[in-house]
Design a protein around this nucleic acid. Structure first.
Lengths: 262, 262
DNA sequence: CAGTGGTCTAGACCACTGC
DNA sequence: CAGTGGTCTAGACCACTGT
């Protein structure tokens, strides 16, 4: 026995040309993958790993940092390093903007959350007139100003997405769409009441690492990417009515879509 | 003047409680964001940053590592650190599995690539019978074995995705689906020839950091997440015919979907 | 308080790139 | 060859957590 630091970690292969910190990362990753270290469980402390492997502290820290960048572990100052718990994941259905939901008086985010038994919340609401970016202007096919509706959405107290809707000011001005709470069914319901008939949505999905602001607002752990969605709502004449720019925590969502076979 | 290391980097705020390496990362990130350092351009070397800020090497390296984890820069051993070039992005259309493409004799990946003016390629093809994972078995609603068709797809020489299709062995056995090259239109065309009528597809989209194997096969830079798609093909009776598990480089793709409004 | 991770220094040697 | 980043050591001091 060699003071095995639990989890059955092995030895270093000094003949290998693989860097020591990578070998340590490999062994910890393997322990996590095999379930010898399970979700939420604490990894051996830096001091224990230093003893076990007989290396300098930076070597151990480099190993742990590799795992952090992979999203496998989270370090908590003063407490330890833990296998990253997988938060509950919400599956966004392909029909999440179906009219029946609006008719039930639910905005999409609220409806989805309640259907899944979670408690939704919305904060950081900012509504103002803006000159749109060239990209937004092009998507809306307009030259003038827009109404921008920004908010952050939370599930069971955990921030999961920020979103900004852009609506041509010509459409939004003087309507409940300019209110912080636009009423039952959300702004899509208001648009339909105003005589705009929603035809379909187009959604573009990207994924990337968050910038520091996004990581802060969404309380993202290192190694957790974001979805960046840009959704355009079209009326039945294929005229754009709204663009919604959304940044979502990828550890909180699975996006689901239905594709036609013809 | 203080040997300004190009790019107009500023000074450290010693009164700030923000860590020095984060301040350095902030300044470099800002320089990139403002275009003072543009795509592909080389950052000041570690030695230059050490001189400029008067800090230890590890401090500078920590700063650069922050930017790497954000996907903003790539380090090349012996050459320097460079603002990560944005590779050309392929937009995957919502109708990419439309029948007309199969009838034109193109598999989806090939059709998409050629339509966009790129040169597609496929390698690492492995086809074999397997006992499916519980998840795959459940999606296919079967108990028996599957035919697994694995491949890696490249655009203009750059690997962009790996994919594995799972087809119930009962369906695939003794058909061209078991061939490395299943013929024009891909396996979906073969399925239809066999009398299965494709009705629709359901696609689940996740994003996460790659594991080391995925990073290697897709030549992913640090800080580049992957899309993980699981697509199920259904026939017109809503019976599953195939499941395709795909891992894609997120810096190579924008996924595009059409959502119904009712 | 002891134990944890966070930051930083000052060096060393190595491996890769390009002239 | 000089210049670059990659790895590693051996320390120091700090900040946070929990007892």
């Amino acid at each position: 026995m060699d003071g095995d630091v639990r989890a059955g970690l092995g030895h270093l292969d000094s003949t290998s040309d693989r860097a020591v910190f990578r070998q340590i990362a490999d062994q910890l990753r393997d322990a996590i993958g095999r379930g010898r270290l399970s979700e939420g469980e604490q990894l051996p402390s830096e001091a224990q790993l230093i003893d076990h492997y007989g290396v300098a502290r930076m070597t151990v820290r480099n190993a742990i940092q590799v795992l952090q960048a992979e999203g496998l572990v989270v370090a908590e100052h003063g407490r330890g390093v833990f296998v990253r718990p997988r938060p509950p994941v919400r599956r966004l259905a392909a029909d999440r903007f179906a009219r029946r939901l609006r008719e039930e008086g639910k905005a999409a985010f609220i409806a989805e959350a309640e259907q899944a038994g979670s408690t939704p919340a919305v904060d950081n609401i900012v509504i103002r007139e803006e000159r749109p970016s060239p990209d937004i202007a092009a998507r809306l096919n307009i030259k003038g100003k827009v109404l921008a509706r920004h908010r952050r959405c939370l599930l069971d107290g955990r921030p999961v997405e920020t979103a900004t809707s852009f609506i041509p000011l010509e459409i939004a001005r003087g309507t409940p769409i300019t209110d912080p709470n636009p009423g039952p069914g959300g702004i899509y319901a208001r648009l339909e009441e105003l005589g705009y008939h929603l035809g379909h949505f187009e959604e573009e999905v990207r994924a990337r690492m968050p910038d520091p602001d996004e990581a802060k607002v969404l309380l993202l752990a290192p190694g957790v990417p974001v979805f960046h969605l840009i959704r355009t709502a079209y009326d039945t004449d294929d005229q754009p009515l709204e663009v919604c720019d959304t940044v979502m925590a990828t550890d909180a969502y699975i996006l689901s879509y239905r594709l036609p076979a013809r």
